[in-house]
């Protein structure tokens, strides 16, 4: 069952120097109970895409295209309808839990506020019962409900964020770099927790990260973004086994893990989104660039089963 269907999504930010196109005609699908890993370097538009799904972008952003979720098109939906969806059908976990939890509110208050936002006349006892259930799921002692965020460690804060996201059994969870500010061991703990919760709550998860290792371990499908475009999409196993897009190849080569013997990197720098290169934005760094690459952006083709790629190396 397709949970989320994004088609031809464009997001651009207005700026003094001109529009910044952060997401350009992106297509994505997330199935229920599946984790889609969205990977890319900083500034490639992956966070913008995640925020566009819940429509929590700043006012300077213009969104076009379609995001079909829970029987609605989130691009055209009105604010009251969106508000009903946020936190209930779809939740978001951010990178830094300390800046996302209110330092002046106890954990109890965070949960009460969230529950009352959706059910204004919710009974406090009932709300706390639900809170205890999700806190138990993320292994936070419920007697710490009356503590403030600063009294928890980094990993616990992120688990509280996850618990907040889970209160209404959402069908979609957008996790935007959920472990980037955490240590490796805690990172693995949190992602294992997310993985088990995903199965328990049957959610679809959009895992946004720059770490290919995490994608390999915790996602089923993946999409690689570069300069606002989705360069490649497909099942994680296939993409890691046989990366098609030269950028995906370069990215996989530059991963440093325990078995790395030699260092590889992609020459050059990620482009400036204000003045992206013409045609395929990767062509100035691409080892197999052709004259055609500078012309127009390559069409998205389907060279293998379940896989799409936007590159002239794979004509339709």
């Amino acid at each position: 069952m397709t949970l989320l269907d994004i088609e031809g999504l464009n997001v651009s930010y207005a700026s003094r120097a001109g529009p910044i196109r952060a997401v350009i005609s992106a297509d994505l699908k997330i199935e229920a109970g599946q984790t889609l890993g969205l990977v890319g370097e900083s500034g490639c538009g992956k966070s913008t895409l995640g925020k566009a799904i819940l429509r929590i972008l700043p006012d300077t952003a213009t969104v076009t295209g379609s995001i079909r979720f829970a029987g609605l098109d989130l691009v055209t939906a009105e604010e009251p309808a969106l508000r009903k969806i946020r936190g209930r059908n779809a939740s978001l976990i951010f990178q830094d839990p300390m800046t996302r939890l209110d330092p002046l509110m106890t954990v109890r208050h965070h949960f009460l506020e969230l529950i009352r936002a959706h059910e204004p006349d919710a009974d406090e006892d009932d709300a706390m019962k639900r809170t205890r259930r999700v806190l138990t799921a993320v292994r936070i002692p419920p007697d710490r409900l009356d503590q403030f965020p600063h009294e928890f460690s980094g990993g616990m804060r992120q688990r509280i964020m996850i618990a907040l996201a889970l209160v209404f059994n959402p069908t979609l969870l957008v996790a935007d770099e959920p472990t980037t500010s955490l240590d490796v061991i805690v990172e693995a703990q949190i992602l294992q927790l997310l993985d088990s919760i995903k199965n328990e709550f049957e959610m679809g998860v959009l895992l946004i990260t720059h770490n290919l290792g995490l994608i390999a371990e915790y996602a089923e499908e993946m999409a690689v973004m570069y300069a606002g475009h989705i360069a490649e999409r497909g099942p994680v196993r296939d993409v890691f086994k046989e990366p098609l897009h030269p950028y995906t190849k370069g990215l996989l080569d530059s991963v440093i893990d325990l078995e790395t013997r030699e260092l590889h990197s992609i020459p050059g720098q990620p482009p400036d989104l204000l003045q992206p290169p013409s045609g395929c934005p990767f062509h100035p760094r691409c080892p197999s660039a052709m004259p055609v690459c500078t012309g127009a952006f390559p069409p998205t083709t389907r060279p293998r089963r379940d896989r799409t790629v936007a590159c002239y190396l794979y004509p339709g």
Partner: peptide, 16 residues
């Protein structure tokens, strides 16, 4: 705890 960038070698980790 280091993630292994190889989806064919997923293992359950015994974390502290």
């Amino acid at each position: 705890a280091i993630p292994i960038p190889d989806p064919s070698r997923r293992t359950k980790k015994e974390l502290p």
